[in-house]
Simulated assay, not measured.
Amino acid sequence: MRDCSKECQRGAAPDRWLDGLDAMVAELHAGQRFCCSQTVLAIGMRRLGIDDPDLLRAMEGFCGGACDGACGALAGGAALMGLYLGKGTEREPRSETIRQYVKELTETFCAYWKGTTCESIVHGEAELRKRICPNVIAGAVEMVWSILGEHGLDLDRRRIDRMPRQ
């Protein structure tokens, strides 16, 4: 399904989750009819063992370029990075690196897909959207995991899982 598997992985070690990525995209995007942003986040949530429909509901605001045209898969990728690194409670510190990592994601995404908006990727063509969007979704997930992995994050645990309890 996806056509960016080698280029999207920026030299990261093999990841067993990528073996089932196309099937997860098909199940969530086509089967359960989640949009691009929801699908990217849902895949990350599965990996982290998170079951929270409210997070997926919140991602619907980024579907189909609804946020000033930004590709939902890219928005989902940024949200996925936030899920790994972001501040979620009063006691948690803000991530000092998330902006850098999201910038890396955006640059990698733009270089590969030649843009960051739905329009620049699928040019408003419904048939092209059906063919390309599953690849863009899988590519965004690969890019997120590659970037986080390159920076030494354990992709099977969130940052808060590693923080000492107070």
Rank of each mutant, 00 (worst) to 15 (best):
M1K: 04
M1Y: 11
R2Y: 05
D3H: 10
S5H: 09
K6T: 03
E7I: 11
E7R: 14
E7G: 07
C8T: 08
A12F: 06
A12K: 02
D15P: 06
R16Y: 13
R16I: 08
L21R: 04
L21G: 00
D22H: 08
D22W: 14
A23T: 03
V25R: 03
A26C: 10
E27N: 11
L28I: 13
L28E: 07
H29E: 07
A30C: 14
Q32A: 12
C35I: 03
S37L: 04
Q38R: 09
Q38T: 03
T39H: 01
V40W: 05
V40Y: 08
L41D: 06
A42Y: 08
A42S: 15
A42H: 01
G44F: 14
G44C: 15
R47N: 10
R47L: 12
L48C: 03
L48Q: 06
D52T: 05
D54Y: 11
L55P: 00
L55R: 12
L56F: 09
R57E: 07
M59Q: 12
M59G: 05
G61H: 04
C63G: 07
C63Y: 07
C63V: 05
G65N: 04
C67F: 12
C67W: 07
D68Y: 06
A73P: 00
A75T: 01
A75Y: 08
A75G: 04
A75P: 02
A75Q: 02
A78D: 05
A78I: 07
L80E: 13
M81P: 00
G82K: 06
L83D: 05
L85E: 03
G86Y: 15
K87W: 11
G88V: 13
G88K: 14
R91E: 08
R91M: 09
R91I: 06
R94D: 08
E96L: 09
T97P: 01
T97K: 12
I98T: 11
R99H: 15
Y101R: 13
V102M: 14
V102K: 12
K103P: 02
K103H: 14
E104C: 04
L105H: 10
T106Y: 15
T106H: 15
F109R: 03
Y112Q: 00
K114L: 09
T116A: 13
T116S: 11
E119H: 14
S120I: 04
S120L: 13
S120Y: 08
I121M: 09
I121C: 02
I121H: 07
V122N: 09
H123S: 10
E125P: 00
L128N: 02
L128H: 11
R129S: 06
K130V: 15
R131V: 14
C133P: 12
P134T: 09
N135V: 03
N135Y: 04
V136G: 01
G139V: 11
G149W: 14
H151D: 04
G152F: 12
D154H: 12
D154N: 14
R157D: 02
I160K: 05
I160Q: 00
I160Y: 01
D161F: 10
D161Y: 08
D161L: 05
R162N: 05
R162K: 08
P164L: 15
R165C: 09
R165D: 03
Q166K: 11
